[in-house]
Amino acid sequence: MTLAQIKPGHGGVIATVEGEGALRRHLLDMGLTPGTKVTVRKVAPMGDPLELFLRGYALSLRKDEAAQITMREDSLV
């Protein structure tokens, strides 16, 4: 399951961050590293992007980018 499929109000722990290049590194730099707990707080009014909460701060990400982040199946709440 990817981060893009998680419903608002739910969350889990990151398994892997797919993709490549500067964007992937930027996602990692922003704290989306494997093992990090993330909750999806909200979806924007028009259905995209998402508002996430991780490491004590709010981050906005498009679903396309969130789809590159896979979640640990056993961690989903």
């Binding site: 922003m30 701060y57 709010a58 981050l59 906005s60 396309d64 980018e65």
Partner: peptide
């Protein structure tokens, strides 16, 4: 361009 943006308090 990807959209990765902090939503500050």
């Amino acid at each position: 361009v990807p959209f990765v943006m902090e939503l500050p308090a």
